[in-house]
Amino acid sequence: MRRTQTGRLRILMIALCGGLCVLIVTPAFLAARSCFVPAILGYLLFSPLCHQIPERSFHICEYPLAVCQRCSGIYFGLFLGLLLPLKRLFQICSQPHLRLFVLCICTPIVLDVFLSYLGIWPGTPLSRFSTGLIFGSASALLLNFAFSEFLAEDHWKKVFTHCAQAKGVIL
């Protein structure tokens, strides 16, 4: 029963991440087809989450994606990582060394950001996308493993209870 629930949650997350990946590329396609208003809406949705600098974004049909190269790598990495059935491999290799795993996946992206910011490393589209892809896909492995614990401990019930309580507190 729990394996079914975990599978359903995983499918839901894959659908969510897949939907985000589609939303990222949609404004460029819409702009290419002269559907300017929905394209602008698509760019506005992602504007709080990304700097959207065109020189640091991939282009489709000469229009930039809704997020930059690094964020594209993260979102596509999340989608790919959730698709791959590597939960067992993660359990064997990384679970005993969780802190080391987290440090290993965060180091490339943090280094790429800070070295570019300091001017030491110019940063290339490949470095931005690949560090984002590594971070996203490895994070998806971590999340994949965490979902089975999330469902086993009935946290989803606690989250809904706490959301209702928080709504009462805020209102």
């Binding site: 969780l98 965490a146 979902f147 089975s148 614990e149 999330f150 401990e153 946290h155």
Partner: peptide
């Protein structure tokens, strides 16, 4: 556990 971390993180985000 990681599951608890996911739960508290999701609540924080919402």
């Amino acid at each position: 556990t990681l599951g608890s971390g996911v739960a508290v993180g999701m609540l924080t985000g919402i």
